[in-house]
Design a protein around this nucleic acid. Sequence first.
DNA 1: GAATACCCGATATTTTTTGTCAAGTTTAGA
DNA 2: TCTAAACTTGACAAAAAATATCGGGTATTC
Lengths: 142, 142
Amino acid sequence: MRITTQGDYALKCILRIAADGPQGPVSISRIVDKEGLPLDYLEQLLLKLRRSRLIKSVRGARGGYLLNVPVASITVAHVLRAAEGEIFELICDRKKKDGKKCKGSEDCVLKDVWKNLKNKIETYLGSVKLKDLLKKTRCTVT
Amino acid sequence: MRITTQGDYALKCILRIAADGPQGPVSISRIVDKEGLPLDYLEQLLLKLRRSRLIKSVRGARGGYLLNVPVASITVAHVLRAAEGEIFELICDRKKKDGKKCKGSEDCVLKDVWKNLKNKIETYLGSVKLKDLLKKTRCTVT
DNA sequence: GAATACCCGATATTTTTTGTCAAGTTTAGA
DNA sequence: TCTAAACTTGACAAAAAATATCGGGTATTC
Ligand code: FES
Ligand code: FES
């Protein structure tokens, strides 16, 4: 189980946008310079962030990205959901090779474990605000 | 983010072994019959469970698997760790394409988020005991 | 109109997960 | 002792997901 680079990169992008946005739109190439991540890949991630309305874009020369909502209202959960889809997917909902799946019974004790886990993960990540992350130091990738 | 079938299947296997073990060693084919999972794949998972000493095997005709430790002492975390390796891997510890990695600084606020999340996940899964799961109903795969 | 920079669908590569195979060893029981 | 049941193990194959790249497009500034 792990956070994928999509979520990680998306978070780094939006933190950079939140940090530098006040000085004007933040371009992808600026993010690439500061964070050292693959440009074409970030483009896709930023598109997802925009489509989920967390950021907005300014096209044309001197364009870039800006937050679309107050930084205080964005949580890590919001960003991960935008970049990765559901934060924690229940394995019970996935189809296996031959179309088999967990029988949908609602009183399965294993499913309860996964549901509780999902709940705990989402509660925690929903409690971490970008605003708080901005205050403290963050590493670079080298 | 999700639990893989490895963890899911391993848990189903060990629950079956815990449930039927008292009547003698539980063979893979018995597990396959009851749970409807791929035999050759389970073989690998059971090997991992044995190597991590959660179960033991009885070879030869009428052989199979038995728990190697009291059922009360096994948690979901134990089983997942045996089957999947680390339950939650910090992305900060993974290498990227060109050998890049998070600079190992210990005061990175993002890394703190992931560490807290890891901690919460492991604490919860470490609190769920097989013994308790056995008491309640569990679904079948169809 | 030239340069900057986002838009977006398609495709390619790599890694991980999932599943399969085959040849071997051990043991119970006839 | 012979045979069938059942675990052991490493290697291999297939499928899915994650990661990355490309190319032609559009909008905006200067
Ligand atoms: S519903 Fe998925 S394991 Fe029971
Ligand atoms: S150490 Fe990984 S994001 Fe900072």
